[in-house]
């Protein structure tokens, strides 16, 4: 069996945790990929841009030999996901944690109403998450253990003038994750929703007003801490919760006149 997939076995007294990160070639995802390996997980990173992904993976394996695995994948290729999920889980030898981080935010002008861009965001940010997390949910439900994390956004808390498509893709993701959580918590499976604020990644390039920007590494640490302690909804950093409470409570007759 030449092409037989070699599963990574554990020595019985030295159990290892296993994780999948979807959207792992840059930004928060790459930082999560690396931080998980540093914490001793066996991690499979998936991304569309294979070259970048391979570079990240090789860099991790230099300091954490054998911990990182790379799989090239476009999350909008929905039909391939069931087989790929099973292939990835077999390769790393199980699954304890899955983090869906893939997301796109094409820049949209204030006078631009572009269905193609909106659809791209829904395809990647929402349907990609549904395709992957439903695979994980089915497995976790069957084996009775596991934790999943969806990287949503503060942008999903309110529809705003800048990018309605992005807002709605993240709002739907937040609601989807909440539904999954309500379904799965009673079976011992955790679901964490992460709402990052401004993180210093490619997505922020060209953004007009930013404040309190944190590094991807710091975001990754906070995200994994939240997952490991079984939190439900976590703003990253935490003070965004306060800001978003305020923003969520601004009445519409004021909010629609604001430029945020």
């Amino acid at each position: 069996m030449e092409e037989q997939q070699a599963t990574v076995s554990d020595r019985p007294l030295e159990p290892q945790r296993r994780a999948i990160v979807i959207g792992a070639s840059s930004g928060i995802g790459a930082a999560i990929f690396e931080e998980l390996a540093r914490r001793g997980y066996l991690v499979a990173g998936l991304a569309r841009r294979e070259e970048e992904l391979t570079a990240v993976c090789e860099k991790i394996n230099e300091s954490q030999p054998g911990r990182a695995f790379a799989f090239g994948h476009d999350v909008t290729n929905f039909g391939s996901i069931p087989d790929l999920f099973s292939q990835v889980v077999t390769a790393i030898g199980g699954l304890d944690l899955i983090i869906f981080n893939a997301g796109v935010m094409p820049s949209v002008d204030l006078d631009e109403f572009n269905f193609e861009k909106d659809r791209q965001m829904v395809d990647v940010n929402l349907l990609g998450a549904m395709a992957w997390l439903s695979q994980a949910a089915q497995r976790f439900r069957q084996t009775g253990q596991g934790h999943m994390v969806g990287i949503s956004s503060v942008a999903g808390d309110r529809g705003r003038i800048a990018n309605p498509g992005y807002n709605s893709s993240k709002a739907a993701l937040t609601t989807y994750l909440e539904g999954l959580r309500n379904r799965l918590t009673r079976h011992g499976i955790g679901v964490t929703t992460i709402k990052p604020g401004f993180v210093d990644t490619a997505m922020l390039v060209g953004a007009k007003r930013t404040f309190g920007v944190i590094s991807p590494d710091e975001a990754a640490r906070k995200i994994i801490n939240a997952a490991e302690s079984g939190k439900q909804v976590v703003y990253v950093p935490g003070w965004w919760r306060l800001i978003m409470i305020i923003i969520q409570h601004i009445p519409s007759f004021i909010f629609r006149r604001l430029s945020i």
Partner: peptide
């Protein structure tokens, strides 16, 4: 080597611990 167990891999057929990069 159709018949394998975690014990077999642990004691008799040690895989090299090289990093694996695959594409799928």
């Amino acid at each position: 080597h159709l018949f394998q167990s975690d014990m077999w891999r642990r004691l008799f057929a040690v895989r090299s611990e090289k990093p694996v990069t695959q594409s799928g």
